[in-house]
Design a protein around this nucleic acid. Structure first.
Lengths: 337, 337
DNA sequence: GCAGGGAATGAAAGCGCTTACACCGTTCAA
DNA sequence: TTGAACGGTGTAAGCGCTTTCATTCCCTGC
């Protein structure tokens, strides 16, 4: 393996000049730059990451913490972050902390703090103030996507307001028997999104003078399967049935549509279904939803971070509300007569 | 930030002893070990990754190259790899090379070669021999999951044989009008799986003396939506319709089931549908499939790698055939009378 | 009682880069 | 004409660890 020393020898330059030539920092004459480049190319030289990190203090590596990559939303964020980082020549270290609190603790401590990353992007995680403090204490910018991170920059959508207007959409169509599928306790612990969306739903219902029946606010695990199971209970019983379901995620809305079909319920004639997120399957199911473009949010998080690196020392805490789009498709309509 | 030097001072030991005590390598008296541990804990010391990598040559970081994380299969592999790596105290650097050849080239060269990873796991990628050679040349083990990597270790399932026996399952049920949904050209370029599965399908058909109608071997992009679209064409036409569809992935099988439902076709009474992979939604759709546990494959890849690190210099190239399970559910039955 | 062998430890030499600093030769304004 | 300013370059001091090697000390066997 050729090192910078060999390149310098071959180019007839000092290693300092080669370093400057290849990194683009510092003044180097065009002639030297070209010779350094040529020598590096001939030897197939690739600078050692650990050496340059150690010397410069920058790793060109970003940590991305997600609860899972098996939900569409998270996978989309990961792709957005990954693509933006690749373009910028950064590496992405993925921390998939499915296993919960214990693992998460050790990740934050043993991994993120090991100066291995220049910054951290946390998706939908409600970190404690302690945890946030630790990150900031070691001078590593932290940006949160889809989750409130007091003291850190965040990119998020207005979950409360959007859930409210989604519910209002149903109410305006004439629905009064509206059920809501929210997240279950596992999710509530780490993320505040289900709770926030539920609050928006309840607010809209109250404002319209409509009852929020406890039995019509059901919990599921944010998957198609999970929502399918609870939607079967909701729709299959002999008791009165809702005319509309607002699910806190598109996956749960899709599960609801599938359950409805099982009972011969037509969507939207017999049941309106409204989702939230902008899932790639929304089109196929004609799902009305609020599209939040998680891929774009991931890319934006990277831009913010990289800007901060260049911009200098401004460690501004910005809270960006990401724009959404209300995609009205076929799954919502006026209630049955 | 406390460094090993501060820890050594506090513990009243040399930095060499502290290093040995904390890493567990080399002889250290129990008393010193304890003092080093205590001092490190008090100072919140976490060793610098780049420094130890630079000094030791090991990064404790594994590169994982995937074409996307938005398919269930890949996301599952990522989770399997991630969990295993986290347990072992390794980092995972994710290279999501959705964008194709150009990006992939620069990733392999600029990133993987920068000595940033101890090993690489490539999922479903048909790397060229050149690319494989480069990796091996720099002494970095390479293991492939779900794709043939000549010269490197691989974990894979018997795509050809399994596609064959899946097809035979349909044939034994009495089907003779069997369609196959395979991958489209984008996928074929980088991965050999669709082609291999199609070959298995064709072999079984030929062996049974059944015709492989070109119009019944249709291409889709391995997504639910993509397969839904082509399945609508396949099933909705006025011409003769197949009685069974063997899709090269569960997602495509699910798309087929959804398309069938649109036309009022009952599964399996009017149409048998057979998938492959073991998707988490398979249960909901009652999908008969071949379960290949990608999560387990990811975990196995990590074990193989880590074993190799400990085991020593044996750079054995092993080709592991991962066990699968034929999950017979409700989506396949005898053909309509 | 003494050589020989470990175990425990510390000093110090790197690992392969980046960058502060010093230096030289120009250029250009005063 | 002079000196400040600056572009271009090299020297060398680290970055924060790991690991080799030498040293010390204690135990064992003869």
């Amino acid at each position: 393996m050729a090192g910078i020393k060999e390149v310098a020898e071959r180019a007839g330059l000092s290693i300092a000049t080669v370093s400057r030539a290849l990194s683009g920092k510092g003044p180097v004459s065009p002639a030297s730059r070209e010779r350094a480049r040529a020598a590096a190319a001939e030897l197939g030289f690739v600078p050692s990451y650990q050496a340059s990190s150690l010397a410069s203090g920058r790793t060109r590596n970003i940590g991305l913490v997600v609860p899972t990559v098996r939900r569409w939303y998270f996978a989309s964020v990961v792709e957005g972050v990954s693509a933006a980082l690749l373009d910028a020549g950064y590496d992405l270290t993925l921390y998939n902390i499915t296993e919960g609190a214990v693992r998460r603790r050790s990740i934050l401590q043993d991994f993120l703090l090991r100066k291995r990353v220049d910054a951290v992007i946390a998706v939908a995680l409600a970190l404690t103030e302690d945890e946030i403090g630790q990150m900031l204490a070691i001078q590593r910018p932290l940006v949160g996507i889809g989750g409130p991170l007091p003291g850190a920059s965040t990119i998020r959508i207005d979950d409360h307001g959007l859930a409210e207007s989604a519910t209002n959409h149903l109410i305006r169509l004439g629905h009064s028997r509206i059920a809501h599928i929210t997240g279950d306790s596992v999710y509530e612990q780490d993320f505040r999104i289900p709770r926030t969306r539920r609050a928006g739903f309840e607010k809209a219902m109250m404002a319209a003078g409509l009852p929020v029946r406890p039995s019509w606010v059901v919990k599921a695990d944010f998957t198609i399967e999970g929502a399918y199971a609870v939607a079967r209970d909701l729709l299959g019983g002999t008791s009165e049935r809702p005319t509309a379901v607002f699910a806190a995620s598109d996956e749960m809305a899709i599960g609801t549509i599938l359950a409805a079909r099982d009972f011969g319920l037509r969507v939207p004639e017999d049941l309106s279904v409204l989702g939230m997120d902008g899932h790639e399957l929304g089109d196929l199911f004609g799902l009305t939803t609020i599209d939040q473009d998680p891929r774009g949010q991931g890319a934006l998080a990277v831009s913010l971070l990289l800007e901060g690196f260049d911009g200098g020392t401004e460690r501004a805490v910005v809270d960006t509300e990401y724009p959404t789009r209300f995609a009205i498709r076929r799954s919502t309509a006026v209630p049955p007569a």
